[in-house]
Design a protein around this nucleic acid. Structure first.
Lengths: 232, 232
DNA sequence: ACCTGAACACCGTTCAAGT
DNA sequence: ACCTGAACACCGTTCAAGT
């Protein structure tokens, strides 16, 4: 009774689609474009309105709030994730491909990383992915709650690994000077000889490659661990 | 050369601490308090100024930007994480306790979940934790880059699991009506019989307990997987 | 049914001016 | 050395008014 009322775009009837004027899809498409180009903080209702050559506040007829618009844009990102058919390649390969795919999608839309901690993923695309992931883990042999646990575990790993990556990309820019970066981190790590040992390794010469290796290492560990759950 | 200049509070000399007037520590403490109470969007420089009974813009003498202040507050959160001594309890227990601790810290400061994807963790507290985690994984037997891979993997898992938890807590409030929630999710999952099967399980009667179980399931899997890396 | 502009209550940040 | 207030360029959102 005392609980906050739960609201989400997905739980309200959308306005009937009519031909004239703008459409929700058009707005969401433009929003995603803007988010990709300018990031989460670069999207404003006013600027988006202008981009669609509409008055500053016209969008409010299609969308109740900016947060709702973000929910819609967020689900578009989920729509880019594909779950390979586990019956054709086996669940491990399927899970592995999915994980790499999810990472790439988030790296392509870094603003989505900020939304993972802010909006529940209840859109149709997110549901579709969740549904297919459940099928995958069922095919692997999981039963009951373990299906969802395995699902949550894999998703958590992928996002947990990728979210901080977007933070680095954001502060450092895509290309930067490896020496400057090394120096910066070395300075931050001063007083921790163990950390410095790490920094003097060649990590920073090709951080992209290093991240891939790190991602693969963790992914294999994760899948090994899940496989072990099946044995017990 | 073309790279964006890398900036962070931690790479600039702090202003010399002097006795009179306000201090950076005082400001950061007040900021954390405000963030805990009102969330990330509830913190404004103006309101924080008022809380310290200072003029709206006085804080800018201690801190260059709001983002810098957030970097400082973020590191305070890292300061609450404790890494048990792996020599006393063994690395698995150490890692497990650390993981649970990290999760609790983030749940206590939900705004920090939003910052993980936005700010690199370069503060002294974050460095301290990273340093101690490296020692833990060294004690476990990892060598070379694998030390950092294992580190990244565990951290990713914990944050990846916890970040969406804060999103749920935020939209649903701490206490809510389980039936309303079940109905909401059921509606979102309409058309995916597999998902519905899940919803009709008793998950939602005690979601806190369910999340704990989920977290433990993934954590054990993760640690099993890491242990397997040691064997090879 | 759809769109507009003005208006409200906010933001972060700069900067000349004060003590 | 520290603090202030006014000012600039923004926000999201509401709402009466237009077509």
């Amino acid at each position: 009774m005392t609980g906050k009322q739960f609201t989400s775009v997905w739980l309200r009837e959308p306005r009937k689609a009519t031909t004239p004027g703008r459409s929700r899809e058009e707005i969401v498409r433009a929003a995603v474009e803007m988010l990709d180009q300018e990031g989460l903080s670069g999207l404003s209702m006013r600027k988006l309105g202008a981009k669609l050559s509409a008055g500053a506040t016209s969008l409010y007829w299609y969308v109740a709030t900016k947060d709702e618009l973000l929910e819609l844009a967020y689900d578009e990102v989920w729509g880019e994730m594909t779950v390979p058919d586990p019956d054709r390649v086996g669940w491990r390969d399927s899970a592995s491909a999915l994980a790499h795919g999810m990472r790439q999608v988030v790296l392509r839309h870094p603003w989505s990383a900020d939304l993972i901690g802010r909006l529940p993923a209840l859109g149709p695309h997110a549901m579709e992915v969740a549904d297919r992931m459940r099928k995958m883990f069922k095919a692997a042999g999981f039963t009951g709650p373990a299906i969802d646990f395995a699902n949550a575990t894999l998703t958590a790993y992928v996002f947990g690994m990728t979210i901080p990556e977007t933070a680095w990309n954001a502060t450092m820019g895509a290309q930067y000077d490896p020496d400057e970066m090394r120096a910066a981190v070395a300075r931050a790590a001063a007083g921790h000889p163990d950390m410095l040992e790490r920094i003097n390794m060649d990590d920073y010469d090709d951080p992209m490659a290093m991240r891939e290796m790190s991602f693969d290492f963790g992914l294999v560990s994760m899948l090994d661990g899940l496989e072990r759950r099946l044995a017990t």
